[in-house]
Design a protein around this nucleic acid. Structure first.
Lengths: 234, 234
DNA sequence: CAACTTACTTGAACTAAGTACAAGTCGAGG
DNA sequence: CCTCGACTTGTACTTAGTTCAAGTAAGTTG
């Protein structure tokens, strides 16, 4: 949207930078999702031709990779000495989850490409430290960290799917809303054919379930950390 | 690849069916991944024009959705009475994980779209039954089932990314191999800048870590189920 | 200061892929 | 035999990733 400032006399020309491109790409990704990111739109937002980006970045895949690693930097690393491993672990997982919610496209990116950069390394290192502090040694600490990470990632996948749906709904308006209602009705129809799902739909406390869904992340995280704690004791 | 048989005199014309299209789409997805699926290739594999598919299926998104629900049917539902909840839960999770490994594109599809169909409903229903049998009631059973499901899904995301990489490597040959080696070297470079990651790389038992990575899924699953078991007791 | 070089930008153009559409083909029923 | 409805096809439009040759602006050198 915002055109870059034209250079003032005597100043170096105001060119694009990789940093700026990546930041703008993240903005676009947040707003439009992974399939909403395209080079022409990015160019427009940068106030330059779409193809100008290619001087700074190999290709779109590479750009997504850079964007992915960029957002990793947003994560805070709790002070392990101050709070103890379990609090630190919970904080990191919750923080990570929040980041995935802020950037739902991330999950898709992670499922599509193996990626490793500065930001992820920084996070991994601290994560590893946390589970070592918990009492896991060597490869075991790795497994524990991986378990929590994948748990968070899996939770985020659901959220990403919902985010994509919501975006479509708000973008396409009434037509999409109708489709959505129809899909919901069909889903309900299907669910009624299975005893447990049916019971869930028919319980008077149906709202209890939607409330519980919001708490599902914390619940599972808690259970997982409990389980890990138990492994240490054994 | 295989052209459909031309009709024999007097027999009904041999036309495409939704079933056949979906099955072929799954084949293609397994072989080429989500981004490798395209309508022209699908048409070719079906022995028909790419656009013929559109008579049977709304659009590509819809096709992926159908494919997704189709593979859900592959899952076995363990007999809860016979084996007890924990064994059943482990079996279901492991089976689910194996399915994700067989169909790595599934994870990407799930992260991109909210989807609900017959196959998923069937699985959800049984899963719910398992956690009710474990002692969770109502929304709690839901949360427990969701926790395990998302854990498996998160694990699968990593596998999906690796699968995509492997496919690219085998497809693009030596050029990609070089890229890959370079990326690995860079990753190692980065890791050396962080104390714990560095220690991991420098330990003489480095192979222990790769071996542990394969067992990470079981390890985390075990911990998670332990944690859930503990919740019931409380 | 002019020529040159390097660093970037641009517009045009090629390609792949999703999909609409009009026209065709085939089997069945009247 | 005619025709209707089910299905298929080829053409073509569109969007999006990417390449490339040509352009332009700062800085550098003679």
């Amino acid at each position: 949207m915002c055109k870059r400032l034209r250079s003032v006399r005597g100043m170096p020309r105001d060119t694009l930078t990789r940093e700026q491109i990546v930041r703008t790409a993240v903005e676009l990704l947040d707003a439009e999702g992974l399939e909403g990111l395209n080079m022409r739109a990015l160019g427009q937002r940068l106030g330059s031709a779409a193809t100008a980006v290619y001087w700074h970045v190999q290709n779109k895949d590479n750009l997504v990779l850079l964007a992915t690693d960029h957002v990793w930097g947003e994560l805070a690393l709790p002070d392990l000495e101050a709070v103890g491993w379990r609090t630190a672990a919970t904080a990191m997982a919750t923080d990570l989850y929040a980041m995935f919610i802020r950037h739902p496209w991330l999950v898709q990116a992670l499922a599509a490409h193996v990626l490793y950069g500065e930001g992820k390394a920084r996070h991994d290192d601290h994560s590893f430290a946390v589970y070592e502090a918990a009492g896991f040694t060597g490869a075991r600490a790795d497994q524990a960290a991986a378990a929590v990470f994948t748990y968070v990632l899996g939770n985020a996948a659901g959220a990403a799917a919902t985010a994509s749906l919501t975006r479509r709904l708000t973008r396409d308006g009434a037509i999409a809303e109708e489709h959505f209602q129809a899909a919901m009705a069909e889903a309900q129809q299907i669910a009624m054919g299975y005893p447990h799902l049916r019971a869930r739909l028919e319980t008077p406390a149906a709202t209890e379930y939607t409330a519980a869904a919001d708490k599902a992340f914390e619940f599972g995280l808690h259970a997982l950390l409990d389980g890990l704690e138990q492994q240490i004791a054994a």
